[in-house]
Simulated scan of single mutants.
Amino acid sequence: MRSIFIGRFFGPLRASVPLAAGIFEMSYWPFQIANFISALIWSAVLLLVGDVMGKLAEWLWRVA
């Protein structure tokens, strides 16, 4: 299950995670649950990074 979370955050690995899950005969529902949860975490992290970068850019714009 950890590989699904790791694969979500590293672009080139993302395409190979379902293949590896199939090769190792991972059950359907645990894979889907891990995939869904990792997608929620991935999107939250991306939004958080974007928000922090926006706040930083706004602060730099005011200081300069």
Rank of each mutant, 00 (worst) to 15 (best):
S43V: 03
W42P: 02
W61F: 14
G50I: 02
A57V: 08
F31I: 03
A34Q: 12
M53Q: 05
A44G: 13
I33T: 10
L60P: 07
N35T: 04
R2A: 04
R14Y: 07
L60F: 06
K55N: 10
A34H: 05
M1A: 06
G54D: 15
L60I: 13
I37R: 02
V49D: 04
A34K: 01
R8S: 10
R14P: 02
P18H: 06
L47Y: 08
W42S: 02
G50P: 00
A44V: 09
M53K: 14
S3W: 13
L46G: 12
R8T: 13
V17Y: 01
L47A: 15
I4Q: 06
Q32N: 04
V63S: 11
P18L: 05
F24N: 00
G22N: 13
V45W: 08
P12Q: 07
I23S: 04
A64Y: 15
L46E: 15
V52Y: 10
F5Q: 00
I33Y: 10
R62F: 07
L13E: 03
L56C: 04
S3H: 15
I23C: 01
L48N: 08
L13K: 03
E25G: 11
A15P: 08
I37F: 13
A57W: 12
A21D: 10
F24M: 00
F31P: 07
G7Q: 06
Y28P: 00
G22I: 07
A64M: 14
V17M: 07
R62A: 07
F9Q: 05
Y28F: 10
S16D: 08
S27H: 06
F9G: 00
D51G: 07
G22K: 14
A44Q: 05
I6G: 01
R2F: 10
W29M: 10
L46Y: 08
P18M: 01
V49K: 12
N35K: 01
A57C: 04
E58R: 08
W61G: 10
L48C: 14
G7Y: 01
Y28N: 01
R2V: 03
L13W: 11
L47G: 15
V52D: 00
A34S: 12
S3A: 10
R8G: 03
G11N: 07
P12T: 01
A21M: 12
G54Y: 13
V45M: 09
G54Q: 09
R8C: 06
P12M: 02
L40E: 12
W59Y: 15
F9K: 01
S3T: 10
L40V: 15
E25A: 07
F10S: 00
K55A: 11
W61L: 08
G54I: 00
R8W: 04
G22E: 10
F36D: 01
E58D: 15
R2W: 05
A34F: 05
G11K: 08
W61E: 05
G7I: 03
A39E: 08
S16M: 06
